[in-house]
């Protein structure tokens, strides 16, 4: 398919692509509905498109969670930036300092062995 940049991709990469594409499409839809809500003068139209926009946000979050559960880099970055406070651009630096220190945050990563 033209959307792929490589041939003979393993199934895991194809699924990864499916979710990334879904995430992109959901976020585009969020943007479109948000623009329609901002543009309309009819409050009933506004109510519907705002509802639709928020549904798409839910779908985008599901895709993000799928990525987070499977890929440590997504997990690590979402943990660093989501539900945080203060200057967002400084969070990455603080995370780096914590890792360097390696006290308390370090483990063998065993967790659940089921």
């Amino acid at each position: 398919m033209p959307e792929y940049h490589e041939e003979d991709l393993p199934e895991e990469a194809v699924d990864y692509h499916r979710i990334i594409k879904s995430l992109i499409e959901e976020l585009e839809a969020v943007d479109w509905y948000n623009q329609r809500a901002a543009a309309t003068d009819d409050p009933t139209v506004q109510g519907i498109v705002e509802h639709n926009r928020d549904e798409e946000i839910e779908h985008a979050c599901m895709a993000l969670e799928w990525l987070r559960r499977r890929y440590p880099a997504w997990n690590e970055n979402l943990e660093t930036f989501l539900f945080s406070e203060g200057d967002i651009t400084e969070l990455e630096e603080e995370e780096g300092e914590e890792n360097e220190n390696s006290e308390g945050s370090s483990s063998l990563g065993l967790g659940d062995l089921k």
Binding site: S107, L108, G109, L110, G111, D112, L113, K114
Partner: peptide, 19 residues
């Protein structure tokens, strides 16, 4: 990690919460 993940039993049975 390799040894413990092979030999630990409880974590293969009970629900693990955390860390």
């Amino acid at each position: 990690r390799d040894y413990l993940s092979l030999q630990l039993t409880g974590r293969k049975i009970v629900d693990v919460e955390g860390p």
